Amino acid sequence: MNINGPMKMSRSERLQTCHEIAERLHEVYGERIIAIGVYGSVSRGTDGPFSDIEMFCVLGEPSESSTPIEFSYEWSSGPWKAEVNVCSADVLLENASTVDGEWPLTHGPFFAPLCLYDPKGFFPTLKEAAESPTKEDFRHAINETLVGEMYEFIGKLRNIHLNGPHTYLPYLAMQFAQYGAMLVGLHNRKLFTTGAMVLPEALELPNLPDGFDDVARMVMSGELTDSSRIVAACERFWSGLEEWAVENGYVIHTARIPF
């Protein structure tokens, strides 16, 4: 049989495969399993003919002498691909309650997995954990992203504008757009539905920093060959971010040495 990457599969076939994987998980982990669920496009009902399978396998609390479990099986059978995240309940709950710079893209699975097995009602508890972060948690994640990503990007942009190579500018523009969208999502506590929709969904949100629109639309259009245009758009966005941070009480600049 000649297999060249993912092949078309119907939703019913994909769901049947999910159940087969769940059966195998029960064989491997037995009574240690407290919940199995599907996340991603399959859980949302938006999977396409070539979509992969993403699942949780949640294990009971470890004993005091054992190490919390967190790892993934990720494989391709040939015509389809699957990933199963196997983790202790406490690990998954902690992950769900943590806010980081990519929260708008990574935390959707914690809110509405497609349940295949959950006799003790773990998934509602997981949703409660995902809803638990405070305004200060989001503010901290925004501050970290402004400094840890955006400040570094503008430094790299200025270095490249002076010294090259300009071939790196399109990638930087994409980074500006992606992490700009994360900032907007964090500010609005908005979860994006999928990676493919991050930029268009971010553009629909309120309180956008000045310049984000231009960078995002430039990236979505693929018009990334004009180096001077990229530099100008990203510089305008950076200025907009500095103003936006002041207006909303976020912090980019601190004391010279804050410790």
Rank of each mutant, 00 (worst) to 15 (best):
Y168Q: 06
K127P: 10
H19F: 12
L224K: 02
S88A: 01
K81E: 12
E13P: 06
Y171T: 10
G211I: 03
D52Q: 05
T67D: 14
A232G: 04
L183M: 05
Q175N: 14
W75I: 13
E235M: 00
L203P: 03
P170V: 02
L146I: 03
E64S: 14
K81L: 03
Q178G: 13
P109C: 13
G211N: 01
E131T: 08
M218E: 00
N4A: 14
H187N: 15
N95T: 10
D100M: 13
I36T: 09
L92Q: 14
F122W: 07
T125S: 14
T225A: 11
K127M: 14
T167G: 08
R229E: 05
L183V: 08
T17Y: 07
A22D: 04
S63P: 11
G155N: 10
Y29W: 10
T254E: 12
G155K: 06
Y151H: 06
P133M: 06
L157T: 00
T145I: 09
R229G: 01
A129S: 10
Y171W: 08
L199I: 01
E128F: 13
G155P: 02
K190S: 15
S63W: 12
E152G: 06
R256K: 12
D118Y: 14
S132M: 15
G121L: 15
W80I: 09
Y179M: 00
R256C: 13
P119L: 07
T106H: 05
L126D: 14
G180F: 00
A232L: 08
V198N: 00
T46C: 10
S88V: 03
M7I: 07
Y73M: 11
Q178I: 13
